[in-house]
Design a protein around this nucleic acid. Structure first.
Length: 873
DNA sequence: CGATATTGCAA
DNA sequence: TATTGCAATATCG
């Protein structure tokens, strides 16, 4: 050891607790094992090593066994809550991490970590180390000397304060040693150390200025001021002595360690990788070189002329499996451009076709037959984008066989983003080498597809997801490509008319609002509006948000009648929403190559298996209010065609009837009853023919709520009744539909037992928070467990419908096209002469994509635009 | 400029 | 303190 080497001693228990409370419990492995404390501790340890550069380091832990303090005083730490269940197992985990770092773990039966640290700190200081103790426990401050300092984690794990001798003197106005006497006098609530009644921080500090120690105080009680205080010190002197003893950190623990062994050394690489993989600390794994680099050949053949291309195509003839990927320069539809095309065959043989040199049209034409050959299995990355490009150039890919991102989505649908890097690290424990050359990078990506296919297909198979992947999700990609390229025609003039009409209304409302409020302000700012309403106009505050007053529609509605400004604000909000979210952005998204709007359907976003739609989102175009509904007028069918909307009637409730097997619900659907009226009759105990409008409305809300994992509170808010009434309705509902209740309990149990719930097509959703000790998180997971099989199965059914619809239109050689999917509805554009046939065929096909124990029914609506639709049949 | 909060639209 | 999404706007660091 060199002189002044730095020795760090960490209080494992204290720091792990700190990390546990500082980091969200969402940090878990995919199995649901909690890792937040371990992660936080590890990060802190690494930062400590990085920033403080210790020469030696060790971590001390408490053991579960009682210490001498418990023997001394039964009540010691008796009020302490038991370590949370989510934390306990993390003690063993952090010890594994430390072992991998080759950092000594110190623990000794009968002693606390503090005592071990105290003993070793003193020993270290004597041997000439500069000692730093890291802990979240202020007790350690008594150990501070010239050579021993404390790093105290004030809050969380990042806020650290260093206490050296000066700092302690400054903060406590006492020598560190005297902090023990202080504890003896004032006690310590957190450790259940009693001290002397009526003496707190102020008095004990004062006394210890007057006397050198607790003992001196007790020996000279006469000189203490205050009658009551003297009395208590006399009565409770022994208690004080005991308290001091409890608070004293031991400096003579019989622990046998050679400080030389604490010297920081290189970690055990293999063990570190092993433990980080187990804990799924992917960022740390990367940092510690835990991943092998995927070593592919750097070789590839660059194709820059047509003779080389011909040669490649000739070689490909024999190949039944290829990986391909375009290198895109522009992905706007009907203007797509690619810089190149990578093709890999025979597992690793790579070609890059330079499409800056070669004409894209020519390249694609030359490869058309190959891409359209169903016998040739294609692997691609971001297949939808690649297929969009090819289809734009007239090539309809057949034989699409694998996309790692899509497979990854089915394996972990709740992941925030689906990307290749995660898949490589998570499933293959490798990463791609960093390559400067763009082209080489592309070839590496495509090469990796083969490795991923092998592993991911196996995982899909193990989890019963392969059929969903092969029969539904993968074939859906070309269907989504159709929808996106089709787009929907837009009446641009109508859009402009709407925009100026809305602007006029906004201007006039705005003027009136300013008049009423006596000043101009930004009506779009909830903050400014809140100040006007609740401060200037003095309206009652209904609800607050994190940052101020809530001005949401529900709040404003309650204020209606209190001030004439309110209805104006509500009206302003409505028009502002329509204009800024729908009308104006839609105009910008018209593709002038096609004069249509082409949304993008994302297949890998939702946790339940639904699609989502962006740029623009065509799945949330207004319909409920007349003003909002106007927007739908701009979505039109071309000349000579009609829009046909086919929607599944109450598909989610039918799914619920099927999976819950509730006889009452099934029977209602089999008998084609009005389900909301039926529910009203059941819940309110009246005959179906006597159900009032209001009762039916409420029953409808109950039926919706059920599918979401209803709470009395939520229902009460929705239909404006008391919590008690809402609770009664729900009870009565479960009474009449008992299997629905059973279904809910079962799904929650499934999630607890298996960690996930499933849909009709076996789609999974993992719900690790189902076991959370946090009520909110747990309840949320429970509602997901209830809702996901319902919403997800409905999504499954719709995906089957899309496949069936697409296939049927092709088989029949019809010109009709699918334009949109809105969760339970498909919108088609149909030449008038095909209308009859398409209506009839879609009804038949969509109602029979799957056989449930209740009938599936679709309703058909036809119109010239998406607003003025009329029901047919 | 990016992240976050609030608000509100759909199924 | 009801499920799943996307997006506009304001505001803050």
């Amino acid at each position: 050891m060199e002189k002044n080497d730095r020795l760090f001693l960490l209080d494992g228990n204290s720091l792990l607790h700190r990390a546990f409370y500082a980091l969200p419990k969402t940090l878990q492995t995919s199995e649901g094992e909690y890792t937040n404390a371990v992660f936080g501790f590890t990060k802190m340890l690494l930062r400590l090593i990085e920033e403080e550069d210790p020469d030696a380091l060790a971590v001390a832990f408490d053991l579960a066994a009682p210490t001498f303090r418990h023997k001394e005083y039964e009540e010691y730490k008796a009020q302490r809550k038991k370590t949370p269940d989510e934390l306990s197992p993390q003690f063993d985990l952090i010890k594994e991490v430390l072992t991998a770092f080759k950092i000594p773990v110190l623990q000794l039966e009968g002693y606390e970590g503090d005592d071990i640290i105290g003993t070793l700190a003193q020993a270290g200081a004597q041997e000439g180390y500069q000692v730093t103790i890291t802990t979240g426990d202020r007790d350690a401050l008594q150990l501070v000397t010239e050579d021993i300092e404390i790093m105290y984690t004030k809050r969380g794990i990042t806020n650290i304060v260093k206490y050296d001798l000066d700092k302690v003197r400054e903060d406590y106005e006492l020598e560190p040693k005297k902090l023990i006497d202080m504890k003896g006098l004032m006690g310590d609530k957190s450790d259940n150390i009693p001290g002397v009644d009526g003496i707190g921080e102020k008095t004990s500090t004062k006394l210890l200025h007057q006397f050198d120690s607790l003992e001196e105080v007790l020996d000279n009680i006469d000189q203490v001021s205050g009658k009551k205080r003297k009395e208590r010190l006399r009565e409770q002197g022994d208690r004080a002595r005991m308290s001091k003893k409890l608070a004293t950190i031991k400096l003579d623990v019989p622990i046998d360690y050679d400080l030389e062994e604490f010297t920081l050394v290189e970690p055990d690489q293999d063990k570190l990788v092993e433990v980080f993989s187990k804990l799924e600390f992917n960022t740390l794994l990367k940092e510690f070189g835990g991943y092998d680099t995927l070593s592919f050949s750097e070789d590839f053949e660059l194709i820059t002329d047509y003779s080389q291309l011909d040669k490649l195509i000739n070689n490909l003839k024999e190949e039944k499996q290829i990986g391909f990927k375009f290198n895109f320069a522009e992905t706007k539809l009907y203007q797509q451009k690619a810089n190149g095309l990578t093709i890999v065959y025979n597992d690793q043989e790579a070609y890059y076709i330079d499409m800056k040199e070669l004409e894209a049209k020519e390249v694609v034409k030359a490869l058309k037959d190959y891409f359209e050959d169903e016998e040739v299995k294609k692997l691609s990355l971001d297949s939808k984008q690649n297929l969009l490009y090819l289809k734009e150039l007239g090539v309809e890919v057949e034989g699409l066989d694998f996309d790692p991102l899509l497979a990854g989505y089915l394996l972990r649908p709740s992941n925030k983003k689906q990307d290749l890097e995660d898949l490589l690290t998570e499933y293959l424990k490798v990463e791609l080498s960093e390559v400067d050359d763009e082209v080489e990078q592309e070839t590496q990506l495509v090469r990796s597809l083969f490795k991923l296919k092998e592993k991911l297909i196996k995982d899909l198979k193990d989890k019963g997801l392969l059929e969903l992947f092969v029969d539904v999700e993968l074939p859906l990609i070309p269907v989504l490509v159709e929808l996106e390229l089709n787009g929907i025609a837009v009446d641009e003039d109508e859009l402009e008319r709407l925009s100026s009409k809305l602007q006029e209304k906004l201007d006039s409302i705005c003027t009136k609002v300013y008049e009423l409020s006596g000043e101009e302000f930004n009506l779009n700012s909830p903050k400014q509006l809140g100040e006007i309403l609740f401060e200037k106009l003095g309206l009652p505050v209904i609800k607050r948000t994190k940052t101020g007053y809530s001005t949401s529609a529900s709040v404003l509605e309650e204020l209606e009648g209190k001030h004439e400004i309110i209805p104006l604000v509500l009206e302003y909000r409505q028009y502002q929403k329509l204009k800024s979210t729908y009308v104006d952005p839609l105009a910008d998204l018209i593709n002038h190559q096609t004069d249509r709007i082409h949304t993008s359907f994302n297949q890998m976003v939702t946790a339940t298996g639904r699609l989502s739609s962006t740029e623009p989102n065509l799945q949330n175009i207004p319909i409920r209010t007349e003003e909002g509904r106007e927007i739908r007028k701009v979505f039109v069918a071309e000349e000579g065609k009609k829009l046909l909307a086919v929607d599944y009637s109450q598909v989610e409730l039918r799914v619920l009837a099927h999976i819950s097997q509730d006889e009452n619900l099934i029977e209602a659907y089999i008998n084609n009853e009005d389900i909301h009226t039926k529910t009203a009759a059941e819940v309110f105990g009246v005959e179906a023919e006597n159900v009032t409008y209001e009762q039916r409305r409420r029953a409808k809300a109950i039926n919706f709520g059920i599918a979401y994992g209803i709470s009395p509170w939520g229902l009460a808010k929705d239909i404006d009744v008391s919590n008690k009434e809402a609770e009664d309705y729900i009870d009565q509902y479960f009474n009449r539909y008992p299997k629905v209740k059973e279904y809910m309990d079962e799904k929650i149990q499934d999630a607890k037992d298996q960690g996930y719930v499933k849909t009709i097509l076996n789609r999974r959703r993992y719900l690790p928070e189902i076991n959370s000790s946090n009520y909110h998180r747990r309840s949320f997971a429970e509602r997901m467990a209830i809702n996901t099989p319902i919403q997800g199965s409905a999504a499954d059914i719709m995906k089957l419908a899309m496949l069936a619809a697409s296939t049927t239109l092709k088989e029949r050689g019809l010109e009709s096209e699918i334009l949109l999917q809105v969760h339970d509805e498909l919108v088609f554009e149909v030449p008038t002469e095909e209308l009859e046939e398409v209506q009839q065929i879609m009804k038949e096909k969509m109602e029979s994509v799957i056989e449930l124990d209740v009938p599936l029914i679709v309703d058909l609506n036809v119109g010239k635009n998406w607003r003025d639709m009329e029901e047919v049949e």
